[in-house]
Design a protein around this nucleic acid. Sequence first.
RNA 1: GCGCCCGUAGCUCAGUUGGAUAGAGCACCAGCCUUCUAAGCUGGCGGUCGCAGGUUCGACUCCUGCCGGGCGCGCCA
Length: 603
Amino acid sequence: MKHHIENLIASALAGLEATGALPLNHGATITIDHTKTKGHGDFACNIALVLAKHARVKPRELAEKIVKALPASEKIVKVEIAGPGFINFFLSADAYHTVVREILEKRETFGRSQMGAGRKVQVEFVSANPTGPLHVGHGRGAAYGATLANLLDAVGFQVHREYYINDAGRQMDILATSVWLRYLELCGERFDFPVNGYKGDYVYDIGATLHRENGDKYRHASAKIFENIPPDEPQGGDKETHIDALIERAKSLLGTAAYRKVFDLGLQVILDDIRQDLEEFGVTYDQWFSERSLIEPGDTQGSASVAGDRTSGATAAERAIERLKKSGHVYEKEGALWFRSTDYGDEKDRVVVRENGQKTYFAHDIAYHMDKLERGYDQVIDIWGADHHGYVPRVKAALAAIGDDPERLHVLLVQFAILYKGGERMQMSTRSGEFVTLRELRREVGNDAARFFYVLRRCEQHMDFDLDLAKSQSNDNPVFYVQYAHARIYSVFRQMKEKGFRHDPANGDRHLARLTEPHELALIQRLARYPEVLEAAAQVHEPHQLAYYLRELAYDFHTYYGAHTFLVEDAAVRDARLNLIVATRQVIANGLKLLGVSAPESM
RNA sequence: GCGCCCGUAGCUCAGUUGGAUAGAGCACCAGCCUUCUAAGCUGGCGGUCGCAGGUUCGACUCCUGCCGGGCGCGCCA
């Protein structure tokens, strides 16, 4: 409909340009807006205001000229000039009635479009370190990322969903060492567990699995393990150097193969848990990309889709460093290799290869993003926790340095979800083991409420997640309101059978013109906007627009329900109304599907 | 100190990418269940859009400076 009016305006402008009433090449784009108040019609166009100065005419005068030049359209019953020079369009009821027909024809595909034109988009989200179960903060990224990916898919992008597994690096070594120490406790060894180790219950469980499957195979005497290890914090030492020394001790005592076994057990158990957790949450991926695959050429976990030249056997990380070197934006200082990211506006230069020869996490991330772009995505979307925001400039700088276009990378920062319980803010720390997991949240409030609640805020908005409120399942939670509208429509049809009526959709379609009540027109107009909402939400990466739309749609329906009876004696009116509410049910179901929320038939 | 995000009704938040008289839910007050589910509907109360300038036909929206809150500034990941 918007496009239809755009065409009318464009043709009017062309006419005025031809007669010289308007200058050529004014370069203004025609925008059609929905009006806020009914008195302003259905759509409004501000073109006369925009062009007035250029045409050296008063806005209202120009508006009159445009209106006179407008071609006739059967979809429009009235055109008015209002305010400073807005052109308001009033649609015929018939123009809207066709929407009901369209929804019933297209069913679950109604709202989908080809805006994306098949362009390839990668969405990487959650990507939590596999050092423990997902907590409620990850849940927000999961719900947001999954919904955004669904939206992009719905408007015609080819979407690739990916999880980056941080399975290399110090945090994972700390986990492996923590597992081993818990295992040793089960073997009967006694010692003080390091302050900086992972203390969650799941670490015990993994240690227990290790013990059950291997007995005392990996046991070493605690005296030997802690021999010459610098003291931990409670003993007046430094917790970081203490845990690092323990990691080295674990590696040397166990040997490479056995250490890797312990390490991989922890990784595998936790990753399986994360995968299952997300799956239950309705979040699935096309690919789980291993960080380790960037540095271990033989690794089969990672991307198999990179076509490029790996003839030399170089890892992705090595190739990334090479490309950086060729760019001339690196230098050596104090034994380390630095990337001069300040050349691209970063605050300071960054180390990519440490003094000890190991590549930094940043180097891996350069390689990962290089790999992403090599895979040919038109657009790469990263969804990160807001605490990583300082990281964005250096990644973009690196992409620019190696000759890729940093504009292809979009980093969306999701603010923390702060949990409140009993009016008090809850603290979260993976290390201490005191946190609310995503799984706990899902069990308490349900998947539907969690999914809906999470995407109700713009991602850059801090979110207060009141557990008591979400748990109470009161009508504070809009998900029930929307689901109830859906269930209510099913209920009407159950009632219809009891009353001995039949729904004849063809008859309803013939009598759509009987839908003349203000409630009906309002509902139809809301339905007509659904495709626009999907496009807007996808384009600006704001799933909350869909959530709000569904709430408004549910409101329109509930109001209609309260004001009119659907199951009336007049079959023409009855069938037309049933067509309308079936269309409503369809759009609610379509929208909820994209949000990952169920659409129940009864509640 | 520097950088990013946020500041809209008592609370939690929208505001269609610069449009017309700033909206919703909750809370509070007053109504509506022999009629398709009251998880609902109707009405009312509620605002210096953090503050001050600027840009223009027009600013919650864009620019600058302050104030307040969050986060980040590692050869951690």
